[in-house]
């Protein structure tokens, strides 16, 4: 049974609709990422769950109870803000204790739980510091400890890694995931970083323009994107506009192989760059290398082909491959190509 359920949530600001329709079932202990480009309604959705934004329509069901109209202070959710929102005039310990104090927990228990939580986020010894005396990563851990110490039913995080540099971000991602697993807490995290979403989430909810585009486990979403948007926002893709013709897809005057499963009409033919290999002679299409970029573990090639510009990613195995100007054939397996009706999803 779903632990947290969003039923047709909608939020309109006057004429402008920030969230068109968001329905979602989240299981207990699940880690879900709301992923989407800036302005697609991720924060608005999270704020509706938190109770700071009132939905125009729809319901929020938490553990069987309708909390749609419940005040934010009564929902018992833990929230980590992008700016962390640590109380500047309070010490780390006082920040973490705040939620317990509001629950009128006795001083002794409070102290124990704060100490335990600071231990958990590896901040023991920082209890008497003020937020301004902490580094970015430490601040984030205080924010996490403050949200978790009240034993919330759901943990909400709004772009929690946004303010960290790349190295620290990776470290905090691993730490967050480990902590979440250990506590088994239902978690919803907002991010616009597809790598972060894929590496952390049990399930990714892809949002675009205020609507849910696709909900799937990261691997499934990567392998079976619902359409052009999903295939290009999550990883790279070659998306070719074509038409079903018999048992294959006709792009320009090239016939490309596909598992069509009874599709017809105008389609998008999607093939991931890393699923394509070079062939010296022949190939499904032939093209000319216009540019290549060395990325360490792989090469990224840009090619001109009769079906339009295409990208190919080739693992670096230590041998030089094609160079600019080379004419090469491109080959891929029919089952690696994904064909979706054009316009079915944007």
């Amino acid at each position: 049974m779903a632990f947290l359920k969003l039923e047709s949530l909608r939020k309109a600001y006057g004429e402008f609709v920030a969230v068109k329709e968001c329905s979602l079932s989240i299981g207990e202990g699940e880690f879900v990422c709301l992923l989407g480009p800036s302005g697609c309604g991720k924060t608005t959705t999270l704020q509706m769950i938190a109770g700071f934004v009132e939905p125009t329509e729809g319901r929020i069901i938490l553990n069987g109870a309708d909390i749609t109209r419940l005040g934010p202070s009564k929902r018992g959710l833990g929230i980590v803000f992008q700016s962390y929102a640590l109380f500047p005039h309070m010490t780390v310990a006082a920040n973490v204790a705040f939620g317990l104090e509001m629950r009128a927990i006795a001083k002794r228990e409070r102290r124990e739980r704060v100490a335990h939580m600071l231990d958990l986020v590896r901040l023991d010894g920082f209890a008497d510091r003020y937020p301004r005396q902490l580094s970015g990563g430490q601040r984030q851990r205080v924010a996490l400890a403050r949200a978790l110490v009240i034993e919330p039913s759901v943990l909400l995080l709004d772009e929690p890694m946004g303010a960290l540099d790349a190295l620290l971000r990776e470290e905090m991602q691993i730490e967050l995931r480990a902590l979440q697993k250990r506590l088994g807490i239902t978690t919803i995290m907002v991010t616009h970083d597809q790598v972060e979403a894929m590496s952390l989430a049990d399930r990714v909810v892809l949002l675009n323009n205020g609507s849910v585009e696709q909900v799937a486990e990261p691997f499934a979403m990567y392998e079976h994107p619902s359409g052009r948007f999903a295939s290009t926002f999550l990883g790279k893709s070659n998306v070719l506009a074509g038409d079903v013709s018999g048992a294959s897809v006709l792009v320009g005057d090239q016939e490309l192989p596909a598992d069509l499963a009874g599709m017809s009409g105008a389609v998008d033919y999607i093939i991931r760059p890393e699923k394509i290999t070079f062939a010296a002679a022949g190939g499904l299409v032939r093209g000319q290398v216009t540019a290549r970029v060395f990325l360490g573990d792989r090469w990224l090639y840009q090619l001109d082909t009769p079906v339009g510009p295409m990208q190919v990613i080739d693992t670096n195995v230590g041998l030089p491959k094609a160079v600019e100007g080379d004419a090469v054939g491109l080959v891929w397996a029919a089952e690696n190509a994904r064909v979706v009706a054009r316009g079915a999803a944007s």
Binding site: P72, S73, F81, S83, L86, M102
Partner: peptide, 27 residues
């Protein structure tokens, strides 16, 4: 003033008055 502070206080169980007295006023 960063309003996320008030939201953080509310989400931690503070009433509007408690958020004012403990967080907003000191700021």
């Amino acid at each position: 003033y960063d309003h996320a502070l008030s939201q953080a206080a509310r989400s931690l169980g503070a009433s509007a008055w408690a958020a004012f007295r403990r967080i907003e006023l000191p700021q």
